[in-house]
Amino acid sequence: MSDLQFKRHRRLRRTDSMRALVRETHLRKDDLIYPIFVVEGEQVKNEVASMPGVHQVSLDYLTEEMNELVNLGIRSVIVFGVPSEKDEVGSQAYHQEGIVQRAIRQIKEENPSLTVIADTCLCQYTDHGHCGIVRDGDIDNDESLNYLTQTAVTQAEAGADIIAPSNMMDGFVAAIRKGLDEAGFSNIPVMSYAVKYASAFYGPFRDAAHSSPQFGDRRAYQMDPSNRLEAIREAQSDVDEGADFLIVKPALAYLDVMREVKDRYNLPLVAYNVSGEYSMIKAAAQNGWVNEQEIVMEKLTSMKRAGADLIITYFAKDAANYLDQ
């Protein structure tokens, strides 16, 4: 064998400590953003049937939930609201006493060190379940921007640290940025759902947020999963309009898109590890088909390797515990 010439790559893989020494990609607790679903009422803590371990909680259980996150070392949350009343314009989304606005105030009063991100959309609040205002059976893009801007402003007034618009209306970053600036919130960043596909991975989230559309689907405003160049056009528009973060959603099936967005833009990139990705692993683990800890950490690390700086994930609590181990 002495006359063979080849590289000995295995030298750097021999031991745990050697592998740790040369590891290129690292997952930290500071990278994790935990989604929380807040509902009206009292003493409500409902596990979402399609998302084991994820709960809808009322405000009286919110303190317990946030304290758990703080104790785990998770420093950021994104808040989704499930209102008790819905109407055609989603008025509870931008009401001063809407469920998200009240939740934000409570979190910031009790845990001011937490970074609170407000999801800014209308789908949970409209009786038709779409992300904008419906006129003559179609989504009126420009009218929707007015309601979305009002929502963002009331969320900022409640104390949100970051506004995260997820509606995929054209011009939503420009409209919300202008509205925030005019309301005196020029210091509040916008975490744009810049690249959001019309994905089949969202089903469990719609169970949790009660946000399924009552007619049609969202393919006319969310992106076609087949398209890559369209993602770059969407991201470029949001950069031009003043976005401070860019989200790619979903994450796992779109790591190629995530890498390309990261290579092109120097803004912080956020992977949204969505509900379907979460539920598949939970179901497989409950059946004993996979090692949950190993597969979760491998998956989250793949998102970091693809360029994500931050990860919105329902696995945040689990991952924090794994990192401690």
Score class of each variant (00 low, 15 high):
4 L>K: 15
9 H>K: 15
10 R>K: 14
17 S>H: 12
21 L>D: 13
25 T>I: 14
26 H>W: 09
26 H>P: 00
30 D>M: 06
31 D>G: 01
31 D>S: 11
35 P>M: 04
37 F>Y: 11
38 V>Y: 03
44 V>A: 06
45 K>D: 01
47 E>M: 07
51 M>Q: 04
52 P>V: 00
55 H>P: 08
60 D>Y: 03
60 D>T: 12
62 L>Y: 07
63 T>A: 13
65 E>K: 03
69 L>C: 01
70 V>T: 13
78 I>K: 01
80 F>N: 10
81 G>S: 02
83 P>C: 00
84 S>V: 06
89 V>R: 14
92 Q>P: 01
98 G>I: 00
102 R>Q: 09
103 A>G: 08
104 I>H: 05
105 R>I: 04
109 E>M: 11
113 S>M: 14
115 T>S: 05
118 A>Q: 02
119 D>M: 00
123 C>F: 02
123 C>Q: 10
123 C>S: 09
127 D>I: 11
128 H>S: 01
137 G>C: 11
140 D>C: 11
140 D>T: 12
141 N>T: 07
145 L>F: 02
146 N>M: 12
148 L>H: 00
150 Q>P: 07
156 A>Q: 06
163 I>G: 02
166 S>Y: 06
169 M>F: 00
169 M>G: 08
171 G>H: 02
172 F>A: 10
174 A>T: 09
175 A>K: 06
175 A>C: 03
178 K>A: 12
179 G>W: 01
181 D>V: 13
186 S>A: 14
195 V>H: 03
199 S>N: 07
207 D>L: 10
209 A>W: 05
211 S>H: 03
214 Q>G: 11
222 Q>I: 09
227 N>I: 11
229 L>A: 13
232 I>A: 05
233 R>G: 01
236 Q>I: 03
236 Q>M: 06
236 Q>T: 14
239 V>Q: 06
239 V>A: 06
240 D>K: 12
241 E>M: 09
241 E>S: 12
243 A>N: 02
244 D>C: 10
248 V>P: 06
256 D>S: 12
259 R>L: 11
262 K>R: 15
262 K>S: 08
263 D>Q: 14
264 R>P: 10
265 Y>V: 12
266 N>M: 10
276 G>K: 08
276 G>W: 11
282 K>C: 15
290 V>K: 09
290 V>P: 12
292 E>I: 08
296 V>N: 12
296 V>S: 10
297 M>G: 07
299 K>F: 13
300 L>F: 00
301 T>A: 14
303 M>L: 15
306 A>H: 06
310 L>E: 00
310 L>Q: 07
311 I>P: 09
311 I>L: 09
312 I>A: 07
313 T>N: 00
316 A>Q: 04
317 K>M: 11
323 L>Q: 08
325 Q>W: 13
